[in-house]
Computed example of a mutant assay.
Amino acid sequence: MNNPLVTIDNLTVRFDDRLVVDRVNLSLHRGDIITIIGPNGAGKTTLIKAVLGIQPATSGRIERTKGLITGYVPQHLRLESTLPLSVRRFMLLSGQPLQACEAALARTSVDHLLDASVHHLSGGEQQRVLLARALVRKPDLLVLDEPAQGVDINGQAALYELIRQLRDEFNCGVIMISHDLHLVMAATDKVICLNQHVCCSGYPADISHDPAFIETFGQSVAESLAVYHHHHNHNHDLSGSVVTQNHASPALEGTPRGCQHDHH
Rank of each mutant, 00 (worst) to 15 (best):
S81M: 09
R61P: 12
G95D: 00
G150L: 00
R128Q: 09
Q149E: 15
E223S: 02
L144D: 09
V174L: 04
I163D: 05
T46H: 11
R89P: 03
T65M: 01
G240T: 09
L93Y: 15
H120C: 09
C172V: 03
V73Y: 10
V221T: 10
D140N: 15
G71Q: 01
D22G: 15
I192D: 09
G60E: 02
E223K: 06
H197D: 15
S249G: 09
V24C: 00
G38V: 02
N171G: 03
D206M: 01
G202I: 04
R14A: 12
H236F: 13
H119A: 02
H261Y: 15
V242K: 01
V129K: 13
S178Q: 01
V73S: 13
S239R: 15
H231K: 13
G31H: 13
H230F: 07
Y72D: 03
L166V: 14
H230V: 02
L105G: 05
F217R: 00
E215D: 10
C199L: 05
I214V: 14
I34R: 12
V20H: 13
G240Y: 11
H264G: 11
I33K: 09
R64T: 05
P39D: 01
I69L: 02
A116K: 07
G150T: 00
P256V: 11
L26D: 14
E253H: 08
S122C: 08
M91P: 09
K190A: 07
G173V: 01
T65I: 04
E215A: 05
G43K: 12
I36W: 11
L113N: 06
L28E: 01
I163V: 07
I36D: 07
L47W: 14
S220V: 00
R167S: 00
Q156H: 14
R107C: 04
Y160Q: 03
H112V: 08
A100S: 10
S178E: 05
A248D: 10
G41Q: 07
P256K: 04
T108E: 12
T65A: 08
A158G: 11
I207K: 14
V13D: 04
T58H: 08
A106P: 05
V24N: 03
G60P: 09
T255H: 06
H264R: 12
H247I: 10
D140L: 11
I192G: 12
D9S: 12
I177A: 15
L131Y: 04
S220E: 07
V118S: 09
K190L: 02
V87I: 11
A248M: 06
G67E: 05
T7W: 08
L47Q: 10
A106E: 14
D111H: 01
R30D: 13
L162S: 12
M176E: 12
I192E: 14
G38W: 07
G67M: 06
V243Q: 11
I54F: 15
L5D: 10
Y228Q: 02
A42P: 14
L166M: 05
C172F: 13
V174A: 03
V21A: 10
I54L: 14
H229A: 15
R88W: 04
R23P: 06
V110A: 08
R133T: 11
I153N: 06
N154I: 06
V191I: 15
K49W: 01
E161P: 01
V227W: 09
C200H: 06
A222L: 03
N2S: 04
H209E: 15
L19H: 07
L252H: 05
I37A: 02
H182L: 13
L131A: 05
C101E: 07
G202K: 07
Q196A: 13
M1N: 09
D115W: 13
I33S: 07
A132M: 12
L98T: 04
